[in-house]
Measured scan of single mutants.
Amino acid sequence: LKGVVVAGGVLAGAVAVASFFLRNKRR
């Protein structure tokens, strides 16, 4: 169960970083 929580956190972080980079590329 702990691994699932960690994986979810990593996935959420990756999505946040990806969206951040996409926003920067638009400018």
Rank of each mutant, 00 (worst) to 15 (best):
R26F: 15
F20W: 05
F20D: 00
V5L: 04
K2R: 11
G13W: 10
G8H: 10
A7W: 07
L1H: 09
G3M: 13
L11V: 15
S19Y: 14
S19A: 13
V17I: 11
R27E: 09
L1T: 01
K2T: 05
A14K: 03
G3H: 12
V17M: 11
A16I: 04
S19F: 03
V17H: 01
G9A: 07
A18S: 03
F21G: 01
V4F: 08
G13K: 11
V17W: 06
R23T: 06
A16L: 03
L22M: 07
K25P: 13
A18M: 14
S19M: 14
G8R: 03
V6W: 08
V17G: 01
A7Y: 15
A16Q: 05
V15S: 02
V15T: 04
V4T: 15
F20T: 03
A14S: 05
V4A: 13
A12G: 07
S19N: 12
K25Y: 13
V15H: 06
F21H: 02
A12P: 01
A18Y: 10
A7V: 12
G8W: 09
G13T: 11
V4M: 09
G13D: 02
A14C: 10
V10T: 04
R27P: 12
V15M: 15
G8K: 02
R23V: 05
A12L: 04
F20H: 04
A7N: 08
A12Y: 15
V6K: 14
V15C: 14
A7T: 14
V15L: 12
V10K: 06
R27F: 00
A12D: 01
V4P: 02
A7C: 12
L22K: 04
R27D: 07
A12E: 03
K25F: 15
G9V: 10
A16P: 00
S19I: 07
R26H: 15
V5A: 10
V6H: 06
R23I: 08
R27N: 09
G8Y: 06
L11W: 09
N24Y: 10
G3K: 14
A7I: 15
S19V: 15
V5E: 03
R27I: 09
V15Y: 13
R26W: 13
A7M: 11
V10R: 06
R23A: 06
A18R: 04
L22P: 01
V4H: 14
F21E: 00
G3W: 15
R23H: 05
L11T: 02
V10S: 03
N24H: 14
R23E: 02
G8C: 13
R23W: 11
G13Q: 08
V5T: 10
K25V: 15
V5C: 12
A12V: 08
R23D: 01
K2Y: 05
V5D: 01
K2G: 07
V4L: 11
A18V: 14
R27V: 12
A18H: 03
G3I: 15
L1M: 04
G13P: 01
N24W: 11
G8L: 10
K25W: 15
A16H: 06
G8N: 06
A14R: 04
V17L: 07
L22F: 15
A12F: 08
A14H: 05
G9S: 15
K2F: 09
L22V: 06
V5H: 03
L11R: 01
R27W: 14
A14P: 01
F20Y: 03
G13L: 12
K25M: 15
V15K: 04
V5G: 07
V17F: 07
G3V: 12
N24A: 14
G9R: 06
V5F: 11
N24Q: 15
A14T: 07
N24V: 14
K2I: 06
A12C: 14
A16F: 09
V5S: 06
V17R: 04
A14E: 00
L22S: 03
V10W: 13
F21Y: 11
L22Y: 09
S19C: 14
F20K: 06
F20R: 05
R26D: 08
G13R: 10
V6E: 04
A18K: 01
R26S: 10
V10I: 08
G3Q: 12
S19K: 13
V6A: 11
G13I: 06
A18F: 07
A14G: 04
A18P: 00
F21D: 00
N24E: 04
L11E: 00
G3F: 10
A7K: 12
G9H: 02
N24F: 13
F21I: 08
V6R: 12
L1Q: 00
V17P: 00
V10E: 01
S19E: 10
A7Q: 07
R26T: 15
G8D: 04
K25T: 14
F21V: 11
G3T: 07
A7E: 02
V6T: 05
R23C: 08
A12T: 13
F21T: 02
V15N: 00
R23N: 05
A18G: 04
K25I: 15
A16S: 09
L11K: 01
A18T: 08
V4K: 13
R23G: 05
L1V: 05
A12M: 15
A16M: 05
K25Q: 14
A18D: 00
A16N: 02
L22E: 01
F21S: 01
G13N: 11
V4S: 08
N24M: 06
G9N: 06
F21W: 12
F20L: 09
A12R: 07
V15Q: 02
R27G: 14
R23K: 09
R26M: 11
V17T: 03
K25C: 10
G9D: 04
V5I: 10
V6C: 12
V10N: 03
N24P: 03
R23F: 10
K2H: 07
A12H: 04
F20I: 13
F20C: 09
A12W: 11
L1F: 12
